[in-house]
């Protein structure tokens, strides 16, 4: 078992087989740097619990293919990314820090899927992003491809 400590001082025990899906921790273990607790100063306990949940479920990825449990795993992934933008951001950052490739892909795909077919206004509103482009810059981008911004099919709602 490997012990992980979140930045709010909570410790979690995780099976080595699960935790080595993180390239970062795998390297630490191989280098013999994981003898006691591994502190994770960038990850809070709430996010770490999510990540561990993912690691535990994906521990037997190879086996799933053999036993036909792929559908089950797919369903888990769909449920897993069913979270708010705030939490998604934290999980993406944690996956990036721990270098868990599959989890990064899963979360970025989810982010992309949520952005699809949304208007610029809706995206900014959803993610509370302040537009730091000048009016001229924005107009220039729109002038390059005006047709992309005027389609009646584009969703302007925030949800």
């Amino acid at each position: 078992m490997v012990k992980l400590k979140s930045n709010d001082d909570k410790e979690f025990e995780v099976e080595e087989a699960a935790v080595i899906q993180s390239e970062m921790i795998k390297n630490m273990i191989e280098d013999g740097c994981a003898t006691s607790v591994i502190p994770l100063p960038n990850i809070d306990s709430k996010t770490l619990i999510k990540v561990i949940e993912y690691l535990n479920k994906h521990i037997n990825m190879g086996k799933a293919a053999e036993t036909g449990e792929e559908d089950d795993l797919k369903e888990f992934d769909e449920q897993f990314v069913n979270m708010g933008w705030e939490e998604l951001f934290d999980v993406i950052m944690a996956a990036n820090y721990l270098n868990i490739h599959e989890l990064m892909e899963l979360c970025c795909q989810s982010a992309a899927d949520r952005l699809k077919n949304k208007s610029v206004r809706a995206v900014r509103e959803m993610l509370k992003i302040t537009n730091d482009l000048t009016e001229e810059e924005e107009q220039e981008i729109i002038n390059d491809a005006p047709w992309a911004f005027e389609g009646p099919e584009i969703d302007d709602t925030v949800n």
Binding site: I92, M93, N96, M104, E105, C108, Q109, A111, A112, D113, L115, K116, N117, K118, S119, V120, V123, R124, L127, I129, T130, N131, D132, L133, E138, I141, I142, D144, A145, A148, F149, G151, I154
Partner: peptide, 22 residues
């Protein structure tokens, strides 16, 4: 990470809108 998200926007319209956000 932004690149990982952007490369998953396979429709040119979505991609252009992504590039106009900030």
């Amino acid at each position: 990470l932004l690149v990982l998200i952007a490369t998953r926007l396979n429709l040119i319209v979505d991609y252009l809108i992504f590039g106009t956000v900030c």
